[in-house]
């Protein structure tokens, strides 16, 4: 089977899985709605041409209350898994995750500062805008720190990322000390959450993600060649530094767009690409789309769990409690020899 047909088959299957997860999730909650009704309600939503009669209440619950949150979960899962796949390939390290160059720490500093500090940011930046800007600025700063003479060795980048994350961690701790009454909001944000989502929040990431994902997909082959090592990649006709810059920028913006909205949701960008790599192999032409789709399903499913208990818990806690054991299971049940 060629790589193209394998990609189509896997992507088709994972898209179907995502559709099932979305419909099932939209049916679950304080009011239980059967899947057929959910599907009809979704198909009759605004831009779509169908007009099934599912009742006004069902339609509002599915389309206006549950769907924004589910769509955000899917998009954020998609984004984090995409960025995680690219970062693991980029660093040739299966333990790399989307925030390895400090994107999440940067977003957290921006968000926490907005909540805690008594003054507003300039340019009318809201919490999400501030988080996004500080995430991108952090990634860019790490890149500049690690770059010398136009070359950015990945090892230096990794260490610079770790150092900057540690530093920003201290900044966040300091801000927490002075957070006073708003500490609950800060902690809630830091744990990663999808509650109270509106369509407006979904729209931003829905606009940012597709073009960047397609760009990264167009570089899947370059990412494969980069896995052989930079020297080999150069000998095989890859403009190594330019490609690295582009991959780093695109995946950082993708991550920033996600964490700015939802806070730091861990493990999705780490275990989903890792798990998919064990299933479909290391070739990014198939790994990138399948990881992204699996990441979307994973976050939709875990967020459904997070909100289905008597009290809602931040989804970041669920992804970590489910993700870590699953990761360990993968490690133990398959021989993991490398990327």
């Amino acid at each position: 089977m060629t790589i193209r047909s394998r990609t189509v088959a896997w992507s088709g299957a994972l898209s179907a899985l995502l559709a099932v997860a979305v419909v099932a999730s939209a049916g679950m909650g304080s009011v239980s709605i059967p899947p057929a009704t959910v599907a009809k309600a979704l198909l009759s939503a605004d831009p779509l041409p169908f007009a099934f009669d599912v009742g006004r209440t069902n339609r509002i619950i599915v389309v206006n209350v549950r769907m924004p949150r589910i769509a955000l979960a899917a998009l954020v899962g998609f984004a984090l898994a995409t960025a995680g796949t690219v970062m693991q390939g980029f660093f040739r390290n299966p333990m790399a995750d989307p925030s390895i160059v400090g994107v999440s720490s940067g977003a957290a500093v921006g968000a926490v500062a907005t909540i805690v500090l008594p003054f507003a940011f300039p340019f009318g930046l809201e919490l999400q805008g501030a988080a996004f800007v500080s995430a991108v600025v952090t990634a860019f700063a790490v890149y500049l720190i690690a770059t010398e003479d136009g070359r950015t060795p990945t090892a230096t980048l990794l260490l610079a990322g770790v150092a900057v994350q540690t530093f920003l961690g201290a900044v966040i701790s300091l801000l927490l000390l002075h957070s006073g009454m708003s500490i609950r909001r800060v902690v809630y944000w830091l744990m990663g959450h999808l509650g109270g989502t509106t369509w407006a929040e979904v729209r931003v990431i829905a606009l940012v993600l597709p073009p960047l994902f397609l760009l990264l997909l167009a570089y899947a082959r370059d990412l494969n060649v980069l896995l052989l090592g930079e020297e080999d990649a150069h000998a095989l006709g890859i403009e190594v530094e330019r490609t690295k810059r582009l991959l780093l920028a695109a995946s950082s913006v993708v991550t920033a767009a996600a964490v700015a909205v939802t806070g730091v949701i861990g493990f999705v960008g780490l275990i989903v690409p890792h798990g998919m790599r064990l299933l479909v192999g290391p070739d990014h032409r198939i790994l990138l789309p399948t990881s992204a789709l699996a990441g979307a399903s994973f976050l939709v499913a875990t967020d459904t769990l997070a909100r289905s208990g008597s009290a809602e818990i931040p989804v970041g806690i669920v992804t970590a409690t489910l993700g870590a054991p699953f990761f360990l299971y993968l490690l133990r049940s398959r021989e993991v020899t490398g990327l």
Binding site: I3, R92, N224, L227, L228, G281, P282, D283, G338, L339
Partner: peptide, 8 residues
């Protein structure tokens, strides 16, 4: 340190 097959 990767699992590419030879053809790839």
């Amino acid at each position: 340190a990767f699992e590419f097959d030879v053809r790839t």
